[in-house]
Design a binder for these strands. Sequence first.
DNA 1: GTCTATAGGAAGATAGAC
DNA 2: GTCTATCTTCCTATAGAC
Lengths: 184, 184
Amino acid sequence: MSREKLVGQLVDVFRVYGYDGASLTNIAKATGVGKTNLYHYFPGGKQEMAEAALERVDLWLETSILANLNSKAKPIDKLQTMCEQVKQFFNEGHNSCLWAVLALGRSSNDLFHQQIGRSLCQWIEAIASVLEEAGLENRLAKYRAEDAVLRIQGALVLVRGLDRTEPFLRLMQTLPLELLKSDR
Amino acid sequence: MSREKLVGQLVDVFRVYGYDGASLTNIAKATGVGKTNLYHYFPGGKQEMAEAALERVDLWLETSILANLNSKAKPIDKLQTMCEQVKQFFNEGHNSCLWAVLALGRSSNDLFHQQIGRSLCQWIEAIASVLEEAGLENRLAKYRAEDAVLRIQGALVLVRGLDRTEPFLRLMQTLPLELLKSDR
DNA sequence: GTCTATAGGAAGATAGAC
DNA sequence: GTCTATCTTCCTATAGAC
């Protein structure tokens, strides 16, 4: 079992059970790595496992989202590619977002909150840049970018609450054009 | 300590710590009711406490949100009142949503999911009715109503992630007019 | 209704053999 | 690297005195 693959499974465990709900027994069962042997890979215990999972999501953000948004493609194409990537990453809406799970989970853990805040900011700013590039005014671009990330998060919550993936799938369909609308 | 007041505090504890994160020790400390004495009020233990908290949120939905949306006031006024109530209930964005916390918390607990799904549906349908009443086409009204609840949930997630309440407050400002826009 | 005492188990984590 | 055994702490829950 490579650490690479292990961390990928940690992301899945934590976003299903949450930080407090994910026991070492759960993690061991889900990964196939013995409970005590997990400490060989993550001497810092459960907290280090969650941090590794967060880093993995950050890696996804950089390679699959930010790199695309900062590329030289046309704005509408970049936004559509983003939605495709998001749809895939969240498994058509069946997966929840690790950021949301950890951010809502508990108020105590400030370590997670800082990293999550940075990641969300990076995403919002990258979208805002694309919208400015498409001709939107600075302030409006910032608001709409924030609204885009906000709606993705909201869709993933609603999907879990309603047990229907349609809201998420519809958002991924309509978001690119809606972000670029000239009026509002 | 009346059960009324107790349940109100339970809502706060669960939406801060989540279901798994809220230990009986936590709850006892937050409410001032002895850990073992909690079983006097809730013989079903922690699960019954969470159910009581959910029921309390449902009561809020019915009295503060649905009653208003189903009233005879003008659509724009009803939507503005809704946003005022939401802003107040979530303490200007500082409180998170119990539905989101429990829905994201764990996949196992189907008891919560059913009730949360029903509540979200009721809310969405009530908004959709108001939008139809304002002249929007049936399908569009449904989509926008879903989008409204989705964005409220997303805003509460984003606020926790970014540690800034602005996204939530801005949404509460702009939502009523945006929902009624004739074009899009 | 509120307390002390305590059961019984699961939690996260460590030691050390192989 | 993976295991068994074990530690300590915390968990939910119950019994029963006052």
